[in-house]
């Protein structure tokens, strides 16, 4: 009885976001990282919070942001997607080859890419739910399949994107990159899906406890499949933006930056629990921005790019350790 009372009290408190709210913590961490970066860069005579720099940070977080948003959907349902990196590569290649430098083929190419990524998401979801293959292995297997296709058919950049399509990647409205609006749009859309639709509630339910969700009448398989379609679709959009920035398709577009593992890291950095059921898009966006700000600081300081990975790894571990301390009472996760 007392436990129930304590829990309701907890819940009442939780309505007013306190310092321990995961999203608040993420943005506090972002503010901290920014402040630290500001001090170190200024101390060395650089300028950190300039308009160009902030716009650059935005520009650089778009692609990872899109992938991480999709990954959030998959992780919230207790799944994850390791196939996004190769999917992004294929998307850039298919987009550039279908467009072939012609303005008239931009729209069909975008539809082809989105259709293809939705199909890959569908396959991921079906293999996980209907064939009962663990998500890690299922999406790793799909990643291998895509990788084989890429390596068998492409050795270097292919296709060409018309100039009109390159506006998507590089143009700005005022100071803000067009692609940042795409990211903002995707964030709002996914937020609406998660917080305002039945599918969204079901995704949290499935991630919280699949068994209980099923017994409560949620069609868990459909929910997981939908989450994977959303995840792959965001990867497809990320692929389109990369194609527009590169001007062509590239077999290494998704894999070189390791969007598969980086996106999972960003999601977890954003406070979403890897086991599913808790978290959301706001935190993920914060996690992506933290990584982008770190990158920008390192660039300004001229830190060796390889050393960046060392710090990134340490930051990710430290952040998740902090969240774990906060959530210790809330339950364990593997």
């Amino acid at each position: 009885m007392t436990e129930v009372a304590v829990r309701t009290a907890d819940r009442r408190q939780a309505r007013v976001p306190g310092l321990t709210d995961p999203v608040v913590m993420v943005y506090l961490a972002l503010a901290g990282v920014t402040a630290l970066g500001f001090i170190t860069v200024e101390a060395r005579g650089g300028d950190f919070l300039t308009l160009t720099n902030v716009v650059g940070i935005l520009h650089n977080s778009v692609v990872l942001g899109l992938v991480a948003l999709g990954q959030t959907a998959a992780i919230l349902t207790g799944s994850l997607d390791l196939s996004v990196a190769y999917l992004i590569s294929i998307c850039t290649l298919v987009a550039a080859e279908t467009m072939n430098g012609q303005d008239s083929r931009v729209l069909p190419a975008m539809l082809v890419v989105l259709g293809m990524s939705a199909t890959v998401g569908l396959i991921n979801g079906i293999v996980i739910t209907k064939l009962q293959v663990n998500a890690f292995i299922a999406t790793l297997g799909v990643a291998f399949i895509l990788r084989g296709y890429i390596e068998d058919n492409y050795t270097g950049p292919a296709g060409k994107v018309p100039v009109s399509f390159q506006h998507l990647g590089y143009d700005r409205i005022g100071p803000i990159p067009v692609s940042a609006f795409v990211l903002a749009g995707a964030t709002v859309a996914l937020w609406l899906v998660l917080r305002r639709t039945r599918l969204g509630y079901h995704m949290y339910a499935v991630g919280g406890d699949e068994q209980i969700a099923r017994l409560s009448g949620v069609r868990t398989h459909r929910v997981k499949i939908a989450a994977h379609v959303l995840c792959s679709l965001s990867a497809g959009v990320a692929g389109l933006i990369l194609a527009s920035r590169l001007g062509a398709g590239a077999p290494w577009a998704g894999t070189e930056a390791r969007y598969d593992l980086e996106s999972i890291a960003a999601v977890v950095l954003g406070g979403t629990v890897l086991a599913g059921g808790r978290g959301g898009v706001a935190g993920t966006l914060g996690g992506v921005l933290i990584l982008a700000v770190l990158d920008s600081v390192f660039n300004q300081l001229g830190v060796d790019p390889f050393f960046k990975n060392v710090v990134r790894g340490a930051v990710i571990i430290a952040a998740v350790a902090l969240y774990a301390r906060r959530g210790q009472r809330a339950g364990d996760n593997t």
Partner: peptide, 18 residues
Amino acid sequence: LRVPSFIATLGMMLILEG
């Protein structure tokens, strides 16, 4: 530190590779 092993070892991988 109660970090999930996936993230802990992923971070370690970034650190070692870097």
